[in-house]
Amino acid sequence: MITAERKPMEELIECLKPYHRILLVGCNECVTVCAAGGRKEVGILSSALQMAFKTEGKNLEVKEITLERQCDPEYVEELVTHIDQAEAVMSMACGCGVQEIARRFKDKPVYPAVNTTFMGASERQGVWAERCQGCGECVLGLTGGICPIARCSKQLLNGPCGGSTNGKCEVDPDIDCAWQLIWDRLKALGLEDRYEENIPAKDWRTGRGGGPRKIIREDLVK
């Protein structure tokens, strides 16, 4: 999923200062799962914002809406009936959702309520960790299903570096050394020989190196 975290209240209150009526839009997908911008968080933020405004003697009307998927135009269209009553939109979706609202409603200011953080997985209740950087050319088949690009601090394709200690990364003892994980897994799979192969320098064109990316599926395009 795409993970996110709510921005500090001070920043949110500051950007909403000029407004009296806003739409607060959540998303039912990733940000719901990582408890950053689903219906529940929309309710909490709405209440907190209204209280914050009241303590300063002001009033903020908040219309709460949580869309099925904020990164799809079909669902964003549902805002049409509400958008006119709002002076601005605050989105609790990831950056994709925020931009979709900005694209659809050209004359409406839209503000992000969360910082979109990474593509990750849930390690346990309340803990999410980075797993993928969307490099566009997956190497997981070579590395035992553990990504050295997303999970090694130096994104070494031929690790581990000299800073791996007791399975932990030198950058932070809370970070697992990706190459220790890869090695353990290759051993468990009896694929130790794979380690001997030097992985060549990566072609970053499939990643951000090639500029903003697009996927076009001719069989689906209308």
Partner: peptide, 18 residues
Amino acid sequence: AANPFADPFELRVARLGK
């Protein structure tokens, strides 16, 4: 460079090999 003392020790020679 090579660090014979980092972990996992069993990979240290293999990494030099690379």
